[in-house]
């Protein structure tokens, strides 16, 4: 980045208070886990998922969203840009949360888990998002 580095400020005292208070639950959580996980493989597995999800966000999801945002500024005309951005945010969240029901992730043969035909329902939700957002934009533009 091009800006000059921020001047070094003294760390506020409340940071050290938070650090002291926060370390206790963190240590407790770690201890609970080491107690509960019987072997090294499972112990490491939690760390693997914690770091892995962090990396998946930082290296995959976030750059993807940055790229998508860039594409929107290039492709979408300014007067529709806010609407498209809002609709993309809502659509992304709906798809993320609805992904597992959509693909039928359940590992059991219990028919009461994910009992619906999620494709059409989620498509309807996405359609409603886009219609709503575009309608709001249109009405605002007229006012």
């Amino acid at each position: 980045m091009t800006e000059p580095a921020a001047p070094v400020e003294p760390t506020p005292r409340i940071f050290w208070v938070g650090l002291a208070l926060g370390t206790l639950p963190m240590a407790w959580g770690l201890w609970l886990y080491l107690e509960a996980a019987p072997d090294l493989r499972r112990r490491l597995d939690l760390a693997k998922w914690l770091v892995g999800l962090d990396l998946a966000h930082d290296l995959v999801l976030a750059p993807l969203v940055v790229g998508l945002g860039y594409a929107v500024t290039r492709v979408v005309p300014p007067r529709a840009r806010a609407a498209v951005q809002a609709a993309l945010i809502a659509t992304g969240m709906v798809l993320l949360v609805g992904w597992l029901p959509l693909v039928g992730s359940s590992e059991t043969d219990n028919p009461t888990i994910q009992p619906l035909d999620y494709g059409p329902s989620i498509a309807t939700v996405v359609a409603v998002i886009w219609v709503t957002v575009l309608l709001v934009t249109f009405l605002r533009a007229r006012r």
Partner: peptide, 18 residues
């Protein structure tokens, strides 16, 4: 895992809030 992570996150959240 979910339970232990909850304690770890709450601790880290306190540090972050500070």
């Amino acid at each position: 895992g979910h339970y232990a992570a909850a304690w770890i996150v709450m601790g880290a959240l306190i540090v972050h809030i500070g």
